[in-house]
Amino acid sequence: MTATPPTLRLTRETDDNELWLLLRLNGLLIGYLQVIDCGHELWVMEIGVHPEHRGHGHGTRLLRALLDENPSAQIAGSCGSFAPDHVWRRARTGMPDTALAAWYERHGFRPDRDDEDSRRMVRLP
């Protein structure tokens, strides 16, 4: 008997100026990315991956989907880590800020030295 291969599915939900990219494995939510359209740029509010599914490129898959769909948009976010307790109760804190900044840089983001928030990262079109 052959086992059924896992099904990874990316879906989108929108509401006014917000977009959620939702990543599900066999129907179970394992990752999400929340974006707000600020008019002049897209602001990444949160990227979260379930603790049991980290380290498999799911966060990159979510961010890549956003970048691929918006190649000419300015996209920004904060490299401040958080613990998505509202989604996964036992979630540990995400990547340290320095690791998160390096992760954003691998995807074409750069620190925004002109902004008062030292953790702001931006990808210009």
Rank of each mutant, 00 (worst) to 15 (best):
Met1Glu: 04
Ala3Gln: 07
Ala3Gly: 08
Leu8Gly: 04
Arg9Trp: 05
Arg9Phe: 05
Arg9Cys: 10
Leu10Pro: 00
Leu10Trp: 04
Thr11Ala: 15
Thr11Phe: 10
Glu13Asp: 02
Glu13Ala: 13
Glu13Gln: 10
Thr14Asp: 04
Asp15Arg: 10
Asn17Ser: 14
Leu21Gly: 09
Leu22Ala: 13
Leu22Gly: 05
Leu25Pro: 01
Gly27Arg: 13
Ile30Phe: 10
Leu33Trp: 08
Leu33His: 08
Gln34Ser: 11
Val35Gly: 07
Asp37Arg: 07
Cys38Ile: 07
His40Ser: 11
Glu41Phe: 12
Leu42Arg: 09
Leu42His: 10
Trp43Cys: 10
Val44Thr: 12
Val44Trp: 13
Glu46Gln: 15
Glu46Met: 14
Val49Cys: 09
His50Pro: 02
Glu52Gly: 09
Arg54Asp: 06
Gly55Pro: 06
His56Gln: 12
Gly57Leu: 08
Gly57Val: 02
His58Thr: 04
Gly59Arg: 08
Thr60His: 09
Thr60Trp: 06
Thr60Ala: 14
Arg61Met: 06
Leu62Asp: 00
Leu62Val: 00
Arg64Ser: 05
Arg64Thr: 06
Arg64Trp: 03
Leu66Phe: 00
Leu66Gly: 01
Leu67Cys: 09
Asn70Phe: 00
Asn70Gly: 02
Asn70Ile: 03
Pro71Ser: 11
Ser72His: 09
Ser72Gln: 11
Gln74Asp: 09
Ile75Thr: 02
Ile75His: 06
Ala76Thr: 01
Gly77Phe: 06
Gly80Ala: 12
Ser81Met: 11
Ser81Val: 07
Phe82Tyr: 11
Phe82Thr: 03
Ala83Tyr: 01
Val87Ile: 15
Val87Gln: 12
Arg89Ile: 04
Arg90Lys: 14
Arg90Pro: 00
Arg92Tyr: 01
Arg92His: 06
Arg92Thr: 08
Thr93Ser: 14
Ala99Met: 12
Leu100Glu: 02
Ala101His: 08
Ala101Thr: 06
Trp103Pro: 05
Tyr104Thr: 07
Tyr104His: 05
Glu105His: 08
Arg106Ala: 15
Arg110Lys: 12
Pro111Arg: 07
Asp112Val: 00
Asp114Glu: 02
Asp115Cys: 08
Glu116Ala: 09
Glu116Pro: 01
Asp117Asn: 07
Asp117Gly: 02
Asp117Ile: 00
Ser118Phe: 00
Ser118Asn: 02
Ser118Leu: 13
Arg119Tyr: 04
Arg119Gly: 05
Arg120Lys: 11
Val122Ile: 14
Arg123Asn: 05
Leu124Ile: 03
Leu124Gly: 05
Pro125Ser: 15
Pro125Cys: 12
